[in-house]
């Protein structure tokens, strides 16, 4: 579904991604782990098409298409969803209206039925329950005055509503207490299916107890230095990232 080949990317003058190789197939969950500043969010933003995050060389194909050539909204419409590490506030725009507009834009581009406010509201209320968010939040401005935990849950709610094919989740677990972590993980697991894939970016192993990954990759200084199964996460938990911080020639070569 997603294939990243030798991707280099810069923010401003600074090169941050230095040759990423990664292959994600439908049905898989990949965890991307790494110390702060290693380039996890940068990779997520490059994949989602954030302005200012420029791929300088390499190739990314998504469902056979050149992902980097698409506008951000077209990527979203094609099923790429990014759960933001730091969700953005959109003052004055009610969450339910915002989500309906996005939902309908995606449905329209696929030739699917657009929902009127009533139908959409019915669907939204059902998803709200799954994510365990206070329904009143959907009547407030997007992320405006939301607590950290509410923002994270809201990202998962949006994912549940928009039903992406490829979900890139950038630290959906950071700053959450155990209860919140569990509901967020539950929301993510709901999305798992043979047709969909998840790239779960995290700093800590903790969430991987709830969302069991098929593969784990370690990102250090803009390179994937090691890939493995879920046990790799436990290794990191026990030993930290230090031992990966010296470049390991072998690991750099092997695509995930």
């Amino acid at each position: 579904m997603l294939e990243i080949r030798n991707l280099y990317a810069s923010v401003g003058e600074v090169e941050i991604l230095k040759g990423i190789n990664l292959k994600v197939k439908a049905g898989e969950v990949h965890a991307l782990m790494g110390p702060n500043g290693s380039g996890k969010s940068t990779l997520a933003f490059v994949l989602a098409g954030k302005p200012g995050y420029v791929a300088t060389s390499g190739k990314v194909t998504y469902q056979g298409e050149d992902l980097l050539g698409m506008k951000p909204e077209d990527r979203a419409r094609a099923g790429v969803f990014l759960s933001f590490q730091h969700p953005v506030e959109v003052p004055g725009v009610r969450l339910d209206q915002f989500l309906r507009a996005g939902f309908n834009a995606i449905h329209k581009s696929k030739g699917l039925e657009e929902l009127d406010p009533l139908k959409f509201d019915r669907m939204l209320r059902q998803r709200v329950k799954v994510v365990g968010i206070d329904p009143a939040l959907t009547k407030r401005s997007v992320n405006d005055g939301f607590s950290g935990g509410e923002k994270k849950r809201n990202e998962v709610l949006q994912m549940a509503v928009l039903e992406p094919t490829l979900a890139i989740l950038d630290e959906p677990d950071s700053g959450l207490d155990v209860d919140a972590l569990r509901t967020v993980a539950q929301g993510i697991n709901q999305l798992r299916s043979p047709e969909k894939a998840i790239l779960l970016v995290t700093h800590y192993q903790r969430i991987l107890n709830y969302v069991i990954p098929d593969f784990v990759h370690v990102l250090v200084d803009g390179r994937i230095v090691k890939s493995g199964g879920k046990e790799l996460a436990l290794e990191i938990e026990a030993e930290g990232y230090e031992k990966f911080e010296q470049p390991q020639e072998e690991a750099i070569q092997s695509p995930g």
């Binding site: 979203a76 933001f84 915002f98």
Partner: peptide, 18 residues
């Protein structure tokens, strides 16, 4: 803000209008 809206499927125009 615009990118966040784009990421949810909205064109920049629609995001502005909203």
């Amino acid at each position: 803000m615009l990118f966040y809206c784009n990421q949810r499927g909205l064109s920049t125009e629609d995001a502005q209008s909203l």
